[in-house]
Structure formats: C-alpha cells, structure tokens
Amino acid sequence: MFLKVALLILRKDVAIEAKSREILYTTLFFAVSCILVFSFAFVKEGRAVEDAAAGILWIAIAFAGTLALGRTFERERFGETLKALLLAPAARPAIYLGKLLGVVLLLCLAELLLVPLVALLFSAALFVRPALLAGLLLAGTVGFCAVGTLFAAMLVRARTRDVLLPILLYPITVPVMIAGVRGTAALLASPPDEQVATMWLGLLVSFDVVFVTLALWTFEPLMTE
C-alpha cells in the first residue's frame, strides 16, 4: 500500500512532466549556464584547474536541483492540489517518498546530459570507472533531494520560499557536496583512486539512510497544520 501510493504519486508527476517538460528543460538550461559561468573562473590558459571538473559538475547539480525542487512544489501550490494530496487517505510519508522519487528521477535525467558535457568541455576522464561514478551521482542526488524535498514541501506555505530554500538546504547538504566532489575528484586522478571514491560513496549512502529516515519521520508532523 505504502509503495503503491508513492509510485502513484511518482506516476502523476512523471505524467505531468512528460507533457510539459518544463522543469527538465529549464533545469538543464540553468545547469548548462552554470557550467559556462564556472568555466570563466576555473579555466586558466585554456586548461581547467585541477579537480575543477568535479567541483563544477556537483555545483551545477546542486544549483539545478534547488531550482527543480522549488518548481515541483510550486506546481502543486499553483494548482492548489497540495491540499488535496494531503487530504487523500494515504500515509503522509508515502507522499513524501513519491515526490522524492520524482525529483531524483528528474535530476538523474539531467545528469545524463551534464556528465558527458562536463567530460567533454573540461576533457575530464569521467568515464574511467562508470559504475563508481554512477553510484556517487545517484547516492549524492538522493541525499541532496531527501533534504530538499522535505524543506521544499514545508516551504510551500511560506511567502519567502524562494530565498529560504537555499538558506536551509545548502548548510545541511554540505557533506553531500564534500563527498560528491572529493569522490569524483578521486576518480579523475590518474590512476583513479578507487579506494577513496568507495569510502566517499559509503559516507554518501549512510547520509542517505539517516536523512531519508529522518525526513520520513518528520514529514507527518511538519505537514500537519
């Protein structure tokens, strides 16, 4: 039942997004412009500074993720459907899970384009250990979105939500950024440092476990008036 509700909500979000593709396109465009802006800071004499590719990739994901998180709930607010969603006879944590899956899916789609782009533009050897990189990206995205989905949901009612989301989100997700950037940088080293990358992946997974649990646990009291 729990999973069914979550999957239903995911299906609903995917169906809406598949029709308009608004969030995917805007998020992608934003991420690509981020990469462009960062290249001015980190490219010296035609070559990117060491480890810059890892940092640029993760910052672009974080910035674009913030945008996507804000938009998914903005849509619910605009259609005044959030109340209906919360009134539905379903477990509240299941609603959270469905929303989380939707955002993660969206960001993963964006990453599918961002990673090759960064690899190409900064001639970074991102695909030497594809499985480890995919693991880092997925675990990092889940961790970032776990915190972000909860905060974005809480902020739906706040007037200043656009400003408050990054204020709340960035300090809390710093471990994700450190682990993601350092892990990816370890993969970029030649030869790739698998041990370090695996260690960071472990940290990311434990971050995910703790924060998804915490979010499932606090979603109910937070969304109750």
């Binding site: 809480m154 200043t160 709340l168 471990p175 924060f211 915490l214 009291p221």
Partner: peptide, 25 residues
Amino acid sequence: KYGGPGAEKLAAAMAIFGMANVPFV
C-alpha cells in the same frame, strides 16, 4: 524571522537536521 506563519515548525526541522548533520560534517 522571515518564514512567516508556521516558521517555528520549519525552524524546528532545520535544527533537527542540523544536529543530525554534525557527525556527517
């Protein structure tokens, strides 16, 4: 200060997450 009505709950979640974040950081 700027969260408007219901900001207490938001802030409470922020504090709980902030505390849980300490070991990770």
